[in-house]
Nucleic acid binder design. Sequence first.
DNA 1: CGTGTTTGACCGGCGC
DNA 2: GCGCCGGTCAAACACG
Length: 272
Amino acid sequence: MAESDKEEELDVTKAKVEKVREENLKLKLLLSTILTDYNSLQMHVSKVLQQQRGASMELDINHHDDFGVDISLRLGRSELKLSEKDEELEKMNLEKISEKNKEGSEKKRSAFGLDFRIQSFERRPNTNETMKLGYLSRGVKEANVVTKSVPSRRDVKTTRNENQQEVLETLEQPSLKKTRVCVKATCEDPLINDGCQWRKYGQKTAKTNPLPRAYYRCSMSTNCPVRKQVQRCGEDDNSDYMTTYEGTHDHPLPMEATSPPRIVLLHQTVTP
DNA sequence: CGTGTTTGACCGGCGC
DNA sequence: GCGCCGGTCAAACACG
């Protein structure tokens, strides 16, 4: 009797182990997809930056100002510093990975549905602003990054393009700066899982857009200055959400917000 | 009862 | 100066 009980228990345990193994395999697959996607993003960023560098050299060959680019794909963390050695390693890894994933990465990217592009980014020399993009978990279709140094409200003019996408035009004032990142994402839940806790403090319907815009504050720390706005881009339930993060967290972030994909490209300076 | 959401009121910036 | 508009506040409410 006890013997058969033990055998039954063993079978149940075996089944459990098998289940866990299957789950593990699935997670591994998911991770590899995410990694592939991340690598293709890195490639894309470096390509865009190279193009930008080329364009700026062509545009202003006699101008001797430095032109720096900081990109850090992390949500609201303070600036990441890499030593020269780290940069070299990062570069080597990127090359290695890009060769490995040359084939099929495009296909996988569209299948997984993650992409982003830098619309514009420019900084003046001796400023210390890092661009941050929230890590979006699954369900993200397109991340559309618009980041600039945002001075006081007085100096910011808000215009809109055809897609009701907010574009910030910064007038001359390099001192007062805030991080601002726009992310366009498709998910059922407007509160995409970026690892942080948000508390809604308001909702408004803009005149130019009948769809409501929600305002959230980070509630992970009592006086965290980070805010985000979530604006639906279409009327149907499956439509995209434009999420705009503003500010830098004053507290450590959970794993969800700090885990990869992460892109760090520090100081690409062009000297004519 | 604590925490989060809703929603109308209020405030400051900006254009005319 | 006035009106419009976007962003924020805060009281009321809902929920676990």
